[in-house]
């Protein structure tokens, strides 16, 4: 008995130290691992610091320097110059107008897409086309509109030859501020589709069923449930569209030949010629102004998104 007892216990006793032994190197290896694992974050941190943090800091900081490199507020004061103020006004006006049109048309498209098969051909094509137009068009959209409503554009020529309408009767506006409206809408609507569609898909079928079982009609569903639930997301997307238009540069740069009617173009001329209003480092001050607008818009955006996320759990 004692033998068997020993033989039962002995292996257990033998296991114990082995287990402890096995555990110990493991934990010590873990302890040793945490030190270098912090080092694993270093490349990414350094990269972000060098190529995101540093450039942003320089962009914001140079606005506070004068031509000789000493601290001054003259460039910041230049932001109050009527020319700069009107440029910011143009940028904000253009962004607001195209954001409103883009979000309404885009929301209508999202509504039309409710209930379609998310993996079907229609949705794949809409998703991809929206992605291309919203995020990768840039310069190419400018060409598209030159080919469409340029002086020799397809639509211009058609309207002129077939219907006798000259869209440029009051002068060629395509290469100036009004010319940016159509191309901007052309990338705003797809962005709205991309960003707003997930919110519409978050509408729970149970809500529609609850509405129906309580005797509600389709109109009740939308007025009492759909629209109130979707409003924060809609406004959030609207702000995102605004931010998108406000920071967009490529389309405008490729389209407008001269003049700097919007802020990004003015930054370009400040960077390349350094003679806007006869000041150096004005690009930095303009960049600061843009960042201020962007931070306000994006903060509001994330607040609205936090609110809309309530319904998506």
């Amino acid at each position: 008995m004692a033998d068997t007892l020993v033989s039962v216990v002995a292996p257990l006793e033998g296991v114990e130290p082995a287990a402890v032994q096995a555990r110990r190197p493991e934990s010590s290896r873990r302890a040793a691992f945490t030190v270098p694992s912090f080092l694993g974050l270093v490349p990414f941190a350094a990269y972000i610091l060098l190529f995101l943090g540093l450039p942003t800091a320089i962009a914001l900081f140079t606005g506070f320097l004068d031509g000789t490199g000493s601290f001054s507020l003259t460039n910041i004061e230049a932001l109050a110059d009527p020319l700069i103020v009107s440029t910011f006004g143009n940028s904000i006006g253009l962004s607001a107008l195209t954001a409103v049109i883009g979000s309404v048309v885009g929301a209508a498209c999202c509504y039309a897409l409710i209930g379609t098969n998310p993996t079907g051909l229609l949705r794949s094509v809409v998703d991809s086309a929206s992605g291309v137009l919203a995020q990768f068009g840039g310069v190419m959209l400018a060409f598209a509109f030159v080919a469409t409503i340029g002086i020799q554009g397809m639509v211009t020529v058609y309207l002129r030859d077939s219907l006798g309408i000259n869209i440029f009767a009051d002068g060629v506006w395509l290469y100036e501020l009004p010319g940016l409206i159509l191309p901007y809408i052309y990338f705003q609507v797809p962005l709205m589709i991309i960003t707003f569609l997930p919110a519409l898909e978050g509408l729970k079928p149970q809500w529609a069923e609850a509405n129906a079982s309580l005797g509600g009609s389709r109109a009740t569903y939308w007025w009492r449930i759909g629209i109130p639930v979707l409003t924060p997301s809609f406004l959030g997307c609207l702000l995102l569209l605004f931010a998108n238009a406000f920071s967009s540069f490529a389309t405008a740069a490729a389209l407008t030949s001269q003049g700097s009617q919007i802020v990004p173009l003015q930054i370009r001329s400040a960077l390349t010629s350094e003679t806007v209003l006869g000041r150096e480092n004005l690009a930095g001050a303009l960049a600061l102004g843009m960042i201020v607008v962007m931070v306000i818009v994006m903060t509001l955006y994330s607040l609205l998104m936090k609110r809309s996320a309530k319904w998506q759990r």
């Binding site: 039309a112 897409l113 509109f145 469409t148 569903y221």
Partner: peptide, 30 residues
């Protein structure tokens, strides 16, 4: 159909058709 929030087929294809065609114009023009 009140318990289904999705649009009728006519509404759906009207919206998608019009927007799709308008958005196709610049590409065709290219």
């Amino acid at each position: 159909k009140a318990f289904r929030p999705e649009p009728g087929a006519l509404t759906r294809w009207l919206i998608l058709g019009i927007v799709g065609l308008v958005f196709l114009v610049p590409i065709v023009a290219m």
